[in-house]
């Protein structure tokens, strides 16, 4: 599927929690191409500083309404400019880019009754909503385990609940849900004999912990990785991760997070640092 470049009109922009924003664009041709787990490049202004576009996960898309929605954290110069964008303004975006989550209809999933479990760390919840929609459509809305430092980092929960997803929370300061890390929520999971299928996005330390848990339990697990990205098209080789390989004389190669990912099976990734 070929990505397209778009001067998209901002429909709405809202600060959901301090420094966490949701922005919705009108971009019908782009919305029709989106798959859960993909991202777009957003050029926040026409100037040369900041220079590079911001790669941001697609939170939601609606091919009928022609809209694409992003969730983002205002962390630096680029996202601060994006946060100033008002409805009616145009922003240059291109995508959809990357390979997203393995969806319910995919053939390579294990047989049996599957239970999708989405594990999010903070803003990592963003690419999981459209995935939950896809699972909800086949009657398996699944479970969201959402963690963060505090309650103010947890967003979009009601959107998951509206799909019938069971939501369980963990915060490090105890301001919402379990006091501690999101991994602790696995202790009381109602599996009911189903085979969990983990999908996770968040800080690297969390992804590694979820991967190790999945490995230990024998559950399949996909991770959405984040790396400093530049072109987003697989051309510049800025955003790479170590992936297991079985070519002659090699145990690993550098995979491109932007085009080989951002979603990988966690057991393919080499988690050595």
């Amino acid at each position: 599927m070929q990505p397209i470049l778009y001067h998209a009109t901002v429909l709405e922009q809202e600060e959901l929690k301090p420094a966490i924003f949701r922005i919705r664009f009108m971009a019908p041709e782009l919305a029709r191409l989106c798959q859960p787990g993909q991202f777009i490049q957003v050029r926040v202004n026409a100037m040369v500083d900041p220079l590079l576009p911001r790669p941001i996960s697609i939170h939601d898309f609606d091919s009928e309404a022609g809209t694409v929605t992003l969730l983002y954290h205002r962390v630096g110069k680029g996202t601060a400019i994006l946060a100033q964008c008002q409805p009616g303004e145009q922003v240059m975006i291109w995508g959809p880019l990357g390979r997203g989550w393995t969806l319910p209809e995919a053939q390579d999933l294990p047989a049996g009754d599957l239970l999708p479990i989405y594990v999010a760390g903070g803003i990592g919840v963003a690419p999981l909503l459209s995935l939950a929609k896809a699972w909800s459509k086949v009657g398996k809305p699944g479970i969201l385990l959402c963690g963060g430092r505090c309650e103010e980092q947890l967003v979009a929960l009601e959107e998951f609940q509206a799909l019938g997803v069971d939501v369980d929370l963990a915060t490090e300061d105890g301001s919402a849900g379990h006091c501690g890390r999101v991994t602790a929520l696995f202790d009381h999971l109602p599996l009911l004999g189903k085979m969990p299928l983990l999908y996770t996005c968040g800080p690297k330390g969390m992804l590694k912990a979820i991967h190790e848990l999945a490995l230990q339990k024998g559950w399949p697990c996909q991770v959405s990785l984040e790396e400093r990205m530049c072109c987003g098209l697989g051309a510049c080789l800025s955003c790479v991760c170590k992936r297991e390989a079985s070519q002659e004389g090699k145990t690993w190669t550098h995979a491109k997070v932007c085009t080989d990912g951002p979603v990988f099976w966690s057991k393919e990734v080499i988690w050595d640092d």
């Binding site: 400093r228 530049c230 510049c236 800025s238 991760c241 690993w252």
Partner: peptide
């Protein structure tokens, strides 16, 4: 296989790779 990451850093009106 090239260098380890991070391989890129944005700078004013430019970038390092």
């Amino acid at each position: 296989e090239g260098n380890a990451t991070p391989r890129m850093a944005e700078t004013p009106a430019g970038m390092l790779n």
